[in-house]
Amino acid sequence: MSDLTFIKKELTVLIIDDNEQITKMISTFLRLNNHKCIIANDGEYGLEILQKEQFNVILLDLAMPELDGYEILEKIRSSDKISKIIILTASNITKENQQKFKEIGIKTILQKPVDIDVLLEKITTISKYQ
């Protein structure tokens, strides 16, 4: 199959981020590109829906009040869903944490603000390996 068929495939993306402006912007962009989006604006809801449903790609913010991205990762670290996660964060990631993310199987870490075309490219790349 050519790359084009993959790009046109409809993806279901879960966005876990406490910043509503960001989730709204990304979901608008993804929906315009014919993908489905589920939004979780807090960690608890994000974790709940993440465990319940199936997604092609999960965008995960790290710094969130209450349950943060690190804790979510800790709770699902043995699940196969971890390979579908793209970390999207504005905080600085230390070398040790970068190494930890790699070890548990996270391939993509993006720093905010990220170019939305780059974001889409990474989302399609991750979904291709499934």
């Binding site: 910043n19 402006q21 960001i22 709204k24 912007m25 990304i26 608008t28 962009f29 315009l32 710094a63 504005a90 905080s91 600085n92 720093q111 905010k112 603000p113 990220v114 170019d115 939305i116 075309d117």
Partner: peptide
């Protein structure tokens, strides 16, 4: 500050691109 300054840039740039 780094976190707080970078975060709002993301939707601004995103919507401009959009």
């Amino acid at each position: 500050m780094s976190h707080e300054l970078k975060t709002p840039i993301m939707p601004i740039l995103g919507y401009i691109q959009l």
